[in-house]
Structures are given as structure tokens and as C-alpha cells.
């Protein structure tokens, strides 16, 4: 339990406060150092850590939700429509094709709203952080680079045992067994 302060009264031995401070220093000297040797060893980052945004292009349906919800407007999406030949007896449909997907990480504020709103799980957080650049233009990651971050995305951690079962899980189980896991929509 916490304790109420004021135990170190001034009426003690002169210099006792300094001696106590030195005692802490001496005690710390005997302990292991806490310094992480970053460039030589990689830090252990939790999976939720917001380092860089990865794009799973195959899942993107160019719905533009992420770009619209971004508080910084740092996502650039270009697309064009492509006519899909009609199946037997159906109407011809059009499909959105992604031309450009870029995130300006100089501007991004790492709020994870885009990842939250993405309805088809095309965006993920990766804990990587090593992408400082000499030129600010290089901080705009185009789709290829965003796709490559995908390889560093860790699996999400399991939820607490008292948590509600996520809706996505039951939905995914319902979808199990269905063939074809390509891009939907």
C-alpha cells in the first residue's frame, strides 16, 4: 500500500539525505543495465504497436472510406472503373481497379482510424519503424512499398478471456469452407 510522505524530516543527521541518495546510486550500480542495444538487437514490440500501415492490396475494393475518414487526408487513392463482362444472362458489371494507393507517412498521425473503418481488412498495423528518410517525398509510400510492409504484420493478440467474442470471428467461421477467398465486393 502507498504511504503518506513526510517521513524524511529535516531533524535527522545532517547529510543523511545526501547519503541516502548515494546509497540508491550504489545499489543501482550493482543492478543490470536497462539499456536496450537498439541497432544491434531489435526491440520487442507488441503486435498492436502502431509503426507503419501495411496494405493488402488484394482486399482493397477502392471504397475510399479510409481516405475520407482520415483526419489528415494523408491517403491518396486513384482508381478507374473496368467493365466486367456479364455472366450468363446477367447485366454487365463494373469493377473498381486500384491505380494508386499511397500513404504520406510524413503527415500521418498514426491514429488507426483508416484501419478501423476499412470494411474488408485491407489495412493493417505493422510495428516496424525503420523508415526515416533523407527526402520527405520518400515518406510517401506507394502501393508496392505498402504491400511489402504486409510481410511484417504480426498476428493480432488474443483478447482477454472476459472479452466478448469478436463478431468477425463468428462471421469468419460461417464463411469457412466456402471456396474462393479472393477479393470480395
Amino acid at each position: 500500500m502507498g504511504r503518506v510522505g513526510g517521513t524524511h524530516t529535516s531533524g535527522g543527521v545532517p547529510g543523511i539525505g545526501l547519503a541516502k541518495g548515494l546509497a540508491v546510486t550504489l545499489r543501482t550500480m550493482t543492478r543490470r543495465s536497462v539499456t536496450g542495444q537498439y541497432p544491434d538487437t531489435s526491440p520487442e514490440l507488441p503486435p498492436r504497436s502502431r509503426g507503419v500501415i501495411a496494405l493488402l492490396e488484394e482486399n482493397c475494393t477502392v471504397c475510399m472510406l479510409c481516405a475520407r475518414e482520415c483526419p489528415d487526408w494523408c491517403i491518396y487513392i486513384d482508381s478507374h472503373k473496368e467493365a466486367v463482362p456479364a455472366p450468363e444472362g446477367g447485366r454487365p458489371r463494373s469493377r473498381n481497379v486500384l491505380d494508386r494507393f499511397a500513404i504520406d507517412f510524413a503527415l500521418c498521425m498514426y491514429c488507426s482510424i483508416c484501419i478501423e473503418v476499412c470494411p474488408f481488412d485491407a489495412l493493417f498495423w505493422s510495428p516496424e519503424f525503420e523508415y526515416a528518410e533523407y527526402d520527405i517525398l520518400d515518406l510517401t509510400h506507394e502501393r508496392d512499398r505498402l504491400r511489402e510492409w504486409m510481410w511484417t504484420v504480426p498476428p493480432p493478440p488474443a483478447h482477454d478471456s472476459r472479452a466478448e467474442r469478436p463478431k468477425e470471428l463468428s462471421a469468419a467461421e460461417g464463411a469457412e469452407g466456402r471456396p474462393g477467398r479472393g477479393p470480395r465486393g
Binding site: Y38, M109, F129, A132, L139
Partner: peptide, 15 residues
């Protein structure tokens, strides 16, 4: 050098 992040983690500054 531009270090991205908001705020960048300390390792990012080291990088």
C-alpha cells in the same frame, strides 16, 4: 533526415 511518427518511438529516432 525526416523521422516519421506521431510521435516516433525512441528507436525510430535512433534509426
Amino acid at each position: 533526415v525526416y523521422v516519421p511518427g506521431c510521435p516516433p518511438r525512441p528507436e525510430a529516432l535512433l534509426h
